[in-house]
């Protein structure tokens, strides 16, 4: 028996070598981008792959200032923060009502919100765009915030409803007897109790909003979010790879930091969404 165990261990050790190579491939592109961003244009042409010897930050400065990435960065921050806040408030309100309160049409409304998961933006691209024009929401940051909320909301509502439905009802009933009105119950009990789910949703929705390109391309015209800006930079500077790489690093940095800090929540959020969904 022990012999089988050691043999199995040895096999696993051997297998871990190709797995480590695959892991290297998963981080290589980001390493390549950082390394290229630290080279001068000439330095990159002379040696594209070697480790940079005298790093320069000029590309970052140029991307940030001359290529208007600072402006796009601000747009992305405003829109992402705005959309995530609206998403959390709206999803928590809906989750509270759907999970705890009793009212006619509750099931139908829940199903309607879930069914809209099956309507991705591509399917409604034309009429959605016309709706945005009709409501004067095109080319405005509030418009993009509303669009993100509309498209990322169903999963959030589903998760908040499922989370609140698992809370003990006594919590809610006790608050009722103390004479608190429902708005206060939501504010003082539901929001604080929902913190774990709200945190997961906040992080996941931050990823979705920050990384989006399609909805942003559609809604904004004169203004750009960071990802649309990077896509444009890719088209404009095909030969100036260090500048493009610097832009890529600036655009990815917030997400990489977020992943390092909240890795557990992100990983669990994906898994919970999958297994429970």
């Amino acid at each position: 028996m022990a012999e089988v165990k050691t043999r199995e261990k040895r096999i696993l050790w051997i297998i871990s070598i190709p797995m480590a190579l695959l892991a290297l491939s998963a981080v290589y592109p980001v390493f390549f981008a950082i390394n290229a961003a630290l080279k001068t244009r000439k330095g990159y042409v002379l040696d594209r792959f070697g480790l940079t010897t005298d790093p320069t930050f000029a590309n970052f400065a140029q991307a940030w200032n001359q290529s208007r990435l600072s402006e796009y960065f601000t747009n992305s921050v405003v829109v992402t923060v705005g959309a995530v806040l609206v998403l959390l408030v709206v999803a928590s309100m809906a989750g509270f009502a759907l999970a705890i309160l009793r009212f006619r049409g509750r099931k139908i409304i829940f199903v309607a919100i879930l069914v809209s998961l099956m309507i991705p933006v591509q399917v409604v691209l034309v009429p959605f765009y016309r709706t945005m024009i009709g409501l004067h929401l095109v080319d405005s940051r509030p418009g993009l915030i509303i669009a993100y909320t509309a498209f990322f909301l169903p999963f959030s509502v589903y998760l908040m409803t499922a989370f609140y439905a698992r809370l003990p009802r006594e919590l809610f009933e006790a608050a009722q007897i103390d004479g608190a009105n429902l708005l206060k119950v939501w504010w003082h009990i539901m929001l604080p109790m929902g913190k774990p789910a709200l945190l997961t949703l906040g992080i996941l929705n931050t990823l979705y909003c920050w990384n989006d390109v399609l909805i942003s391309l559609l809604v904004l015209q004169d203004q750009r979010t960071l990802m649309v800006g990077i896509a444009a930079l890719r088209g404009e500077y095909t030969t100036n790879v260090p500048l493009l790489a610097a832009g890529i690093c600036l655009a990815a940095a917030p997400i990489v930091i977020l992943y390092v800090i909240f890795q557990r929540q992100i990983v669990n959020g994906i898994a919970v969404g999958a297994v429970k969904g």
Binding site: A91, A94, F96, A112, V123, V124, P127, F151
Partner: peptide, 20 residues
């Protein structure tokens, strides 16, 4: 309390689907 969620989904997804 469900109105904001429902309105967003209906106005920006369900009606556009029917419209399309």
């Amino acid at each position: 309390f469900v109105l904001p969620a429902l309105a967003l989904v209906v106005v920006f997804r369900i009606i556009p689907l029917i419209w399309g």
